[in-house]
Design a binder for these strands. Structure first.
Length: 444
DNA sequence: TCTGGGGTCCTAGGACCC
DNA sequence: TCTGGGGTCCTAGGACCC
């Protein structure tokens, strides 16, 4: 908690629906629901007109249809438009401060102290008012709610309390006055499960929470969550505004209109999910070490299976092969409602121009790189993927990082100058064809 | 027409190493 | 011949958020 209200939280109001209403004037003033329109769809965003009829985020689309009147627009979503509009807003925020932490397409924190702004309540109110107006103009009609307080949590609660089109400054010193009357469920991080546990011991408001001892709370909801709640009840939150957080995992999943049972179909679906994940991995110039398969049965029971490999990978074949092997160990009786494929344990690599004259130094990126020499060449080499039959090796392009006798170390070509997935094969001819596989091995 | 899709963080147990 | 802890990594599941 800072001594001044210098953290701003912006939350765009009914964002997806607002963009639709902006682009289609006939939808303005009418209930609009954006989300999955199929039999198993859920609501992503309901306009405030639709909320008046009881439509809510995460509700099944069927339920929303039942609640909303005829004439309600049910739309599938145009994510390119949302993302473009989001960028306009985030650019405006970056004019306020170099420290902007984007949480999602429609939400961000801004460190106003880092932007050198006057932090008295009057100035902050004027700043927020001005931001809201500029945002509305720049986006062509989207509105947002702003909270400004001495911490991220309080700023977020502030924007939430005055929605929609809100503006709430919580002056330093008044945090507990705002916090204590609120239901615990309104604290970020307190969902249905924690809410029920707290309620079962008579904790309903933040004031109730404030009366409980640290040990009580830790016993009730665990170490991390318990101490977090203890601090929250005291407005004790000093988390910094952090721009550009690195992603820790990448995943893709799909719920099928009807449950899948056929193994060949499941394996095919895993292939297309793996492709989606790998496309993003490669675009980000990153690679991962762990593949996770997510599996939801016909009855909604959900399980995950994962496997960690010794080397990072960023190719479809590895991801798909590992995921298919994980699938083989799962009882598929009754049918599969959802499949997901994820990659985690991401390693971050320096992006750079492949042919830059003065490449980024790679030596100190990771300890185990120290011994690796500069790449000698980029050339076509056979590429083997962990878990793959040697017979199915392909030709690929890779950086050759040192070819010794009977041994060539290859890194995948990609937008990076630092270590990526390493594939080594033994053999004295670096131009061996896949039809004539050498004695393959995977090795650092 | 019950329950999307993309994430983060935490817990807990077992393996393994020192 | 009984019996340590601590630390880290991996796996599985769960809570929560937008």
């Amino acid at each position: 908690m800072r001594s001044e209200a210098s953290v701003l939280h912006l939350d765009l109001d009914a964002f997806f629906a607002a963009v639709e209403q902006r682009d289609k004037p006939s939808l303005r003033g009418k209930p609009v629901v954006v989300g999955g329109t199929g039999g198993r769809g859920v609501v992503a965003t309901a306009s405030y007109e639709a909320r008046a009829y009881g439509a809510r985020s995460a509700m099944s689309s069927g339920e929303a249809r039942r609640r909303c009147p005829p004439g309600t627009a049910f739309l599938g979503g145009r994510f390119a438009a949302y993302s473009l509009t989001s960028r306009v807003v985030m650019d405006l925020l970056r004019e306020l401060s170099p420290l902007v932490e984007q949480v999602s397409v429609d939400e961000a924190y801004v460190d106003l102290a880092a932007g050198g702004h006057a932090l008295d309540v009057e100035s902050l109110t004027a700043l927020a008012h001005d931001l809201k107006e500029r945002l509305h103009t720049a986006t062509g009609g989207v509105r947002g709610s702003v909270g400004i307080a001495s911490s991220k949590t309080l700023a977020k609660i502030g924007s939430e309390l005055d929605k929609p089109d809100g503006l709430l400054v919580i002056p330093a010193g008044s945090e507990l006055d705002v916090l204590h009357p609120l239901p615990v469920r309104s604290l970020p991080g307190v969902g249905p499960a924690t809410g029920d546990r707290l309620s079962s011991v008579g904790v309903r408001t933040v004031a109730d929470l404030h009366e409980r001892s640290l040990t009580d709370l830790v016993t009730l909801v665990g170490q991390a969550h318990g101490s977090g709640l203890y601090r929250l009840a005291r407005a004790d939150d000093d988390r910094p505004v952090v721009p550009d957080r690195e992603a820790k995992s990448v995943s893709a999943e799909r719920t099928y209109a009807t449950d899948l049972t056929d193994l060949a179909t499941l394996e095919h679906e895993i292939g297309s999910l793996a492709q989606r994940v790998v496309t993003r991995l490669q675009k980000d110039g990153t690679a991962g070490r762990t593949v996770t398969l997510k599996f939801r049965r016909y009855d909604f029971t959900t399980l995950t299976r994962s496997q960690t490999l010794t080397q990072p990978f960023d190719d479809v074949r590895t991801v798909a092969d590992v995921a298919r092997r994980l699938l083989a160990g799962i009882d598929r009786t009754g049918g599969v409602r959802l499949l997901g494929v994820g990659v985690s344990g991401l390693a971050t690599y320096v992006q750079g121009d492949l042919f830059a004259e003065d490449p980024e130094p790679v030596a100190d990126l990771e300890e185990d790189i120290d011994a690796v020499p500069e790449p000698e060449a980029v050339r076509a080499v056979p590429v083997w993927h962990p878990g793959q039959d040697v017979e199915h090796a392909e030709m690929g392009r890779g950086w050759v990082w040192g070819s010794g006798l009977n041994r060539v170390t290859v890194r995948f070509e990609g937008p990076r100058t630092a270590p990526g997935p390493v594939r080594t094969y033994a053999g004295d001819d670096p131009d061996l064809s896949p039809a004539d596989p050498p004695d393959w091995r995977s090795d650092g």
